[in-house]
């Protein structure tokens, strides 16, 4: 059962895009058109989290947040273009759990949502720690190792993240640029050349466990397992 997120945002395009982003991340997103009922929706539909703008036509996000707070302890995250410190303080005083300013990085929004959900003890739908398997090799992201035919390979953080993305897209090519971006999102700030070095080392490591040519390279396309 995925977490349900109630999204209150008046900008149509942005609303659609955030909804997509949330759905792609494995959440269920509800987007009401009328915000005055948002409190009722939050209570009745038992949202796990409310994501809302502050400047809404006809009503204020601060008031909505207070009304929600009065009836339920559903976590609330403000998502707003207002970067004034006073607004941020008001947001927290009205009972918000987090305050994110636009424009935000999609990865950052998801990370903050995940953190708030974790704090409110709702099960996060991330399949991060579940082992991933492909061609008899099992990747254990939590333990940072790869299991293959009785071999257990200890991986560095960088190697783990590289393999993680490849496992998530098993069977498809992952472009080098996408791989570097994924690493940056995980706080590994390396450049294209350094990536090559890491891939080479990773291949050697895999070969030592009997996984020859596990990572396939195609010019202009990237890597694939």
């Amino acid at each position: 059962m995925p977490c349900k997120i109630l999204l209150i945002e008046d900008d149509l395009l942005l609303r659609e895009e955030i909804k997509l982003l949330l759905e792609n991340a494995g959440y269920q997103a509800a987007v009401p058109d009328v915000w005055q009922d948002a409190v009722r929706t939050a209570v009745l539909e038992k949202a796990d989290l409310v994501l809302m703008d502050i400047n809404l036509p006809g009503c204020s996000g601060f008031d909505l947040c207070m009304q929600i707070r009065a009836r339920t302890d559903t976590p609330v995250i403000f998502l707003t273009g207002r970067t004034d410190s006073l607004d941020e303080l008001t947001g927290f005083l009205k009972g918000a759990d987090d305050y994110i300013t636009k424009p935000f990085q999609p990865a950052l929004l998801l990370a903050r949502i995940g953190a708030v959900l974790k704090r409110s003890a709702k099960n996060v739908p991330f399949r991060k720690d579940a082992p991933l398997t492909h061609k008899n090799a099992a990747l254990e992201p939590g333990a940072c190792r790869l299991l293959y035919q009785g071999h257990s390979l200890d991986l560095t953080k960088t190697e783990m993240k590289i393999l993680h993305l490849l496992f998530l897209h098993a069977g498809n090519f992952v472009a080098r640029a996408d791989l570097v971006e994924y690493l940056w999102e995980n706080h590994i700030f390396l450049d294209d050349n350094t990536l090559s070095v890491h891939i080479t080392r990773l291949r050697e490591k895999l070969r030592s466990a009997g996984l020859d040519d596990f990572i396939e390279t195609k010019r202009g396309m990237g890597y694939r397992i």
Partner: peptide, 13 residues
């Protein structure tokens, strides 16, 4: 500035 941040966010997303 607050207004323009909404379309900027939308384009990024």
């Amino acid at each position: 500035v607050h207004e323009i941040k909404t379309p900027i966010t939308a384009i990024t997303l």
